[in-house]
């Protein structure tokens, strides 16, 4: 599965439920609906991310980045 973040456009911030339904209908497994930010996170089967762009209210669909710190004993963190 590919972990993704879906950014919702300004016009759909008060209608996130409808966007979530649209994303689920296109195969997204929704994990979090961040209503304070208008961002929905979750996962899709590999290679199917592009299908979500067509859902009304979707501004962008992005694969999640991984952030990594240096180990605790590193001088520069």
């Amino acid at each position: 599965m590919t972990h993704i973040s879906v950014t919702v456009d300004d016009g759909h911030l008060s209608a996130l439920d409808g966007v979530v339904q649209g994303l689920r209908a296109r195969g997204m497994q929704v994990e979090q609906v961040l209503d304070g930010l208008g961002i929905i996170t979750g996962s899709v089967p590999p290679g199917t991310l592009g299908a979500l762009s067509g859902v009304a209210g979707v501004l962008s669909v992005d694969e999640q980045l991984r952030h990594r710190l240096a180990p605790p004993d590193a001088p520069v963190q």
Binding site: S5, Q32, L34, T41, R66, R68, P72
Partner: peptide, 28 residues
């Protein structure tokens, strides 16, 4: 020491809705 966008965005959402005027993120 690692995390993904999902957790970080969830943290930002929590901080914003908790009324934090300052959000510090030493990560990238």
């Amino acid at each position: 020491g690692s995390g993904t966008d999902a957790g970080i965005l969830a943290g930002i959402n929590w901080a914003v809705t908790s009324g934090c005027p300052v959000i510090s993120m030493s990560l990238g």
